[in-house]
């Protein structure tokens, strides 16, 4: 699947396109981890606005990044999910540990604000 990375300050924004399933998840994990390392960003925003399908593989991708960043004080935020995607993430209790925002801009503002 395609991804576009943007950087705002200390935040990497991963904009995902298309269908996120178990087949795609491996590549998504690798690409995000490499981008985090290459750009040295501490925080991560998942922008799901262009995701047309996601199954439970997305839970693993998000939790995996959270577990990597959290011990070093990094934050993860999720932005702009469809109702079905939000339902799936809710089943795993993701939103009790990771903040959700309606837009990527709000998520970025929240994370960049946290650094100050």
């Amino acid at each position: 699947m395609d991804m576009i990375f943007n950087i705002k300050g200390n935040v990497l924004i991963a904009e995902l396109f298309g269908e996120l399933d178990h087949h795609a998840a491996g590549q998504v994990r690798t690409d995000i981890d490499q981008a985090m390392e290459a750009y040295g960003t501490a925080n991560l925003v998942f922008d799901f606005s262009k995701i047309t399908f996601m199954d439970s593989s997305g839970i693993g991708v998000i939790l995996g990044r959270y577990r990597k960043l959290e011990p070093e004080g990094g934050k993860v935020a999720i932005a702009s999910c469809s109702l079905t995607v939000r339902n799936i993430l809710n089943m795993a209790g993701i939103f009790s540990i990771i903040d959700y925002f309606d837009t990527a801009e709000e998520a970025i503002a929240y994370l960049t604000g946290k650094e100050e």
Binding site: S56, G60, V61, I88, M91
Partner: peptide, 19 residues
């Protein structure tokens, strides 16, 4: 069971049956 996984480091969530 929710969150049960045989995962050995591949970041699977164990939520497939729950979904």
């Amino acid at each position: 069971e929710p969150l049960f996984t045989t995962d050995t480091g591949d970041e699977r969530s164990g939520m497939g049956f729950t979904v």
